[in-house]
Nucleic acid binder design. Structure first.
Lengths: 187, 187
DNA sequence: TATATCCTACCTAACGTTTGGTAGGTGAAT
DNA sequence: ATTCACCTACCAAACGTTAGGTAGGATATA
């Protein structure tokens, strides 16, 4: 069960970090969630920094796959863009959790360098996907796609954060609707 | 110097919490920043929860005063609204810090109830100010002012968070510009 | 005026708990 | 016979918090 345990640690650590952050992630609670002892985690990850970096890397890798699938299944680029908020909605659906990298962005001053790099990679993945979609859909001029993509990413992150603070997923939905009404997101 | 020490604790705790959050705020570092011993903080605040609640309350009180001053000094409601992003910019100017309540919103699962209540009050103050300005300026219909106000607050929070994660205040400015270009903020 | 009492604002020292991390061992599979 | 996956049993440091004490000022009483 070596591979399974490693994957189970990764999955459980992600859940914990999405609710309590890097600082709130600890080996004893994590081990208990997996069903092993705290010291055993060191068999799979040499340190907390390495664990968190692996979790964050896996997080953006999974997101990249998910976004590509969304683009592939949508009839066109505009339709794919319209579904983008759903990706962030899932964290809230999952017991009012936050995007892992939003939480870690807040904690950036206390993050090991290797973790910080993965957190930034997550934003890069999202912005690149959005920029490509915006350009292909012809919603903004190609030279302004990246700026708009960053704005959408930041706004969606903020909406998720605000909805989490109220534990109110319908607030997230109304915020997204407001972004659409205001013209930030394609209607 | 009793009053001064209490105020000094409040001010130092705010700075620390804006950089490290509620979880990252600890009595020893805080006491050192003030120039006293950790145990002495208990002379002024009965517990960490009470301290943090006092910090958060003072934070939204100060913000309310600042926003009212902004409205009073601006020539009209639209001009006041245009200056709103400046209020959030100041945290980034202050050593790349985050809005205290954005940080604590991420930590909401681990916050004592009395702290959580103050965090929500901060959002209420901002949304109420924005909604009033939007209605008076006639930018949106009065019955849609609060929804738009929430969207602006969430988007600005997200922009600040993203800029902090990159330690790049110019990113905040370009995000705000993008919000204006997209129509979310009054141009 | 002198003295006793109390309060404020801090201190040192320690409490029990939790933290990330280490050393070394056990049992099963290869 | 060795490696793998996990264990027990620790450790030092840091955490919020408490106990008890001290220096100095204010107030009240004699």
């Amino acid at each position: 069960m070596s591979t399974n345990s490693k994957e189970a640690i990764l999955a459980a650590a992600r859940q914990i970090a999405q609710a309590h952050g890097y600082g709130g992630l600890n080996f004893r609670d994590l081990a208990a969630a997996v069903g092993i002892k705290a010291a055993s985690i060191y068999h799979h990850f040499p340190s907390k920094a390495d664990l968190a970096a692996a979790v964050a890397r896996r997080y953006w890798e999974d997101t990249a796959v998910e976004l590509e699938a969304m683009a592939a299944h949508a009839p066109d680029a505009t339709a794919a863009l319209r579904r983008y908020p759903q990706a962030f909605r899932r964290a809230l659906e999952n017991d009012n959790r936050l995007c892992l990298c939003s939480f870690m962005s807040a904690e950036v001053d206390d993050l090991p360098d290797i973790v910080r790099a993965e957190v930034r990679a997550f934003a890069d993945v999202n912005v690149a996907w959005l920029a490509k979609g915006l350009a292909v859909a012809g919603i903004v001029a190609p030279d302004k796609a990246e700026a708009r993509a960053r704005a959408i990413f930041a706004a969606i992150s903020g909406a998720q954060l605000m909805a989490r603070s109220r534990a109110d997923i319908t607030l997230y939905d109304t915020l997204v609707d407001s972004y659409r009404a205001a013209g930030l997101l394609p209607a």
